[in-house]
Computed example of a mutant assay.
Amino acid sequence: MCIFIPKCQLLPFFAERISGSRFLSAFFVEPLLHKFTSRVVAVDGQAVKASRRGGERAGKYILTFYDTENGIALGQKLIGNKENEITHAASMVEGLDLAGCIVTADALNTQEKFASALIQKKADYCLAVKQNHKSLFYDIQLSFMDRTETRTVEIEKVELGHGRIETRKISVLPGSCLPAVLLKKWIGLDEGTIVKTTTESVNKTTGEISSLDRYYISSLNFLNAHIAEQCARAVRRHWGIENDLHYVLDVNFYQDRTQCKNANYLQNRVLLNKWALGMIRKLQKNEESETGKEARSVKRIMTKLQSPTAALEALTSLINK
């Protein structure tokens, strides 16, 4: 299993010489996937800090499509820098099976071409909107400020933790609230939804209150029975790519310390890390299913799989299921 592959002297040889696309084709994620209704797939780039050279502000970026339900990276691409996400996200859609998924992304990837590509693949989108799309941003704001609008659907949830009381409110309106000129640009939005999330946080120690509003566009049909809950889930699950993938890769796989000049090696080593993490996620799900208890942590499973025998046994158990 690839937990111990990095110790093999052949890995640098092959990883440096095989192109990223060919290396990716050698790894299969389909057997690791559970079939969920409306899987949420998050899209985001991650910098490998130690790959930074010269006057670069950050290292090379890897753009990833991440299945937040299964904990599996569906695809990745070396993009050079953060801004290149704009041009590559739409092109990556073509090679992925996203039918029935809700694809989420930050404001950088809220692009008409990306939204169109997702609709063509029979996926839905839920994309963050900030002032990089000023007209869209302000028109969404105005829609939620309209006191004559009676179609607003809202849900609210209170969470306790980390010394704070957080109240999360999700408000949704039909996309048709927006001007026709905008609806023509964003395919699927005419029957879709615009979203406002408001997070109010109260510090239990100091009593200090902070509030933050965020806005989104979605192709999810506003007439769906539980549209507010659907949008809330999509927005919440998007953070899985940061918390469950990027953070784990940096902390447990020391990915941000990966120093290299060879682009193929960087891309392929990151791919191995994600494939290994995907296997561990599958082991965790199986363990929870079999024992009814919370699975061991990623770190504990990685420690056990340092043994080639244990790793092969685990891999065999996954193949045979």
Results as ranks from 00 to 15, higher is better:
C2I: 10
C2N: 11
P6N: 08
P6M: 10
K7A: 14
P12D: 06
A15V: 05
R17A: 14
R22V: 14
V29L: 04
P31C: 13
D44F: 03
Q46Y: 02
K49R: 15
G54Y: 08
G55D: 11
R57W: 04
T64H: 06
N70A: 10
G71M: 10
I72Y: 07
A73C: 15
L74I: 10
L74N: 09
G75W: 04
G75E: 05
Q76Y: 05
L78W: 03
N81I: 01
E83M: 14
A89Y: 01
A89E: 07
D97F: 03
G100T: 04
G100Q: 03
C101N: 13
I102N: 02
T110H: 09
Q111E: 12
A115G: 07
Q120C: 02
Q120L: 08
Q120K: 15
K122T: 06
Y125K: 06
S135F: 02
Q141N: 09
S143M: 12
S143D: 08
T148H: 13
T150N: 12
T150Q: 15
R151F: 02
T152M: 13
T152Q: 12
E159S: 14
G161H: 12
R164P: 04
K169F: 03
K169M: 03
L173S: 03
P174D: 02
S176C: 01
P179K: 11
K204R: 09
D213W: 00
R214W: 05
R214M: 07
I217K: 04
L223K: 06
E229T: 06
A232N: 07
V235H: 01
W239G: 11
I241H: 02
Y254V: 00
N262E: 12
R269P: 06
V270C: 11
K274M: 14
A276I: 03
M279G: 06
R281A: 13
L283Y: 03
K293M: 13
A295M: 09
R300F: 01
K304E: 13
L305C: 08
T309K: 14
A311I: 07
A314Q: 08
